[in-house]
Amino acid sequence: MAAVLGIRAWPRPVVVVCATLLVAGCYYAAGRIGLSQQLTADGAVVTPIWPPTGLAVTCLLLFGPWCVPGIALGALLVILSLGVPDIESVGIVAGNTAAPVCAWLMLRAVGFRVSLSRLRDGLALVFLGALTAMLISSWAGVGMLVLSDKLPTDHLGIVWLAWWVGDAMGVVLVTPLLLLLYRARLPPPSVRWAEALGLTAAVCVLVPLIMYSSVSVLFLAYPILIWSVLRFQLAGGIPCALFVSVMATVVARQDAGSFGKLTDVETMMKLQAFNGTLGLTALLLSAVISEQLHTRRSVELACQELVEALQHLNAGGSGSPGPHERGVP
């Protein structure tokens, strides 16, 4: 009989350290992606979408508070990549860490479901996880820059708004996508594969044409987004919204298309407004449709169970002997 060799599990501290480094590495990579799409407004550098906030909130929702050290380390690595850290870097790292933790705590308190199958889940992610919690990171970051005299007070409003909206858009666009990928399963072959491919081709062809058009036709992106949401819910709406937002950011950085004749501040404001409405539309409309489909399936299942119960009762009643068959006069 062959000997059975026991395999010892790794010590828990080693697992925690490796997981922390993994989270920090993913946060840093997401930060570098966000920094690659910078905009300048009134001399201040801003990022329209800050993916690390969405990544941090996702890690906390899926794996819990042990991700906090990795988030803090990742935020520190992003700052180190920009230059020698100063005393204000401590406040920025603290704000970028506290904001996702606050978002996680608030979402947990209201019973948030990572499936995003209810409208209340979409509303909670937008208004609690994004708009409310990201006030912490924006105020902490801008406040530390003002205290260190690296940000003039006349630029305070525009930089704070850009910081807040960028962090919030990271949660609205990136968190649903990562939650979707975490639960993704290969669907069975069906006729909808052809529609999915057609939608993908339409998005890849039409969206660049819309963005680079010299005529301001950004609104034409919304019918495409609505089509993707109506047919594929979250799986279609969020990737489509993220692709459109990235394309809009690229075009804005090139001063092309609808952003060609605008000042830096106007470009930033228009881009942030467009990305914000796009993300909110995709997330909330997907949640509404998913909730309606879930309710419909629940009603159909309840009706089916009721029919089966009635059939069972009828079969039992027809099979029982009558009074004369039992010998009762």
Rank of each mutant, 00 (worst) to 15 (best):
R296T: 11
G95F: 03
G91Q: 03
L199Y: 06
G143D: 06
G317C: 08
L156N: 01
I238Y: 02
L62T: 00
Y212G: 01
A256D: 07
M134D: 11
L60K: 05
L262I: 02
T277N: 13
V217R: 10
A30W: 00
L177W: 06
V229L: 06
V46P: 07
A140H: 03
L125Q: 04
D42S: 15
L107I: 05
P208D: 12
V205W: 14
S245K: 00
S138T: 12
V142M: 02
V205K: 07
G260V: 10
R231N: 10
P187H: 15
C26H: 11
S318E: 09
V307Y: 11
S286C: 03
S318H: 12
F112N: 07
D167Y: 02
V114S: 15
A19E: 13
L230I: 12
A30E: 02
C67R: 01
Q292W: 11
A9Q: 14
C59I: 04
I49A: 04
A9V: 04
S36K: 00
V146H: 10
V146R: 12
M169Y: 10
R231T: 13
G198I: 15
V171C: 06
G54S: 05
A2R: 14
T281V: 11
A75C: 13
W227T: 13
R12Y: 14
A273W: 07
S245M: 03
S137C: 14
L55W: 02
F63T: 10
V84F: 09
L186A: 10
P52C: 05
L313D: 14
R185S: 15
L178Q: 03
